[in-house]
Computed example of a mutant assay.
Amino acid sequence: MSMKQCPECGGMGQAEYERPVVDHLNGGYLEGYMDICERCDGYGEIEDGEE
C-alpha cells in the first residue's frame, strides 16, 4: 500500500496538542505542548486512503 504525508503533523512526527491546567484563582487555561503525533504514531506518514 502506498503512503502519504500525515496531515496532522505535516510529516514531522510531532504535533501540538492542548491540555487543561487547573488554576483556581483564574478559572484555568489550556496549555500547548508538543508530543508524538497520535495519527501516525511519530512516523510522519499514513497509508494512502486512510482518513
Rank of each mutant, 00 (worst) to 15 (best):
Y29F: 14
G28C: 05
I46K: 03
Y29G: 06
V21R: 08
G44N: 02
L30N: 13
G44P: 00
H24R: 10
G44L: 00
C40H: 00
G13A: 12
Y29V: 15
M3H: 12
C6T: 04
I46H: 00
Q14V: 02
E50F: 12
C9N: 01
Q14P: 02
E45S: 01
E16F: 11
P20K: 12
A15T: 14
P7E: 00
R19Q: 14
P7F: 01
D41A: 03
G10W: 05
H24T: 15
R39L: 01
G44A: 03
D41M: 12
L30S: 05
G42P: 11
E38F: 13
I36F: 08
M3T: 12
E47V: 10
M34A: 06
C37D: 01
I46V: 15
M1N: 07
Q14G: 14
M12G: 03
G28V: 12
G49R: 10
R19V: 02
N26S: 14
E38A: 08
C40G: 07
G13D: 07
G42F: 02
M1P: 14
M1S: 13
D41W: 14
C9T: 00
C40A: 08
E18Y: 14
Y29C: 08
G11S: 07
H24V: 07
D48T: 05
G10F: 09
C6A: 11
V22R: 03
E45Y: 10
D35H: 10
E31F: 05
R19F: 06
V22L: 11
G42S: 11
G27M: 06
S2T: 15
E51M: 09
G10A: 05
S2A: 15
E38W: 06
I46C: 06
E50N: 11
G27C: 01
K4S: 09
D48C: 05
M12R: 09
E8R: 03
E50H: 08
C37F: 02
S2I: 13
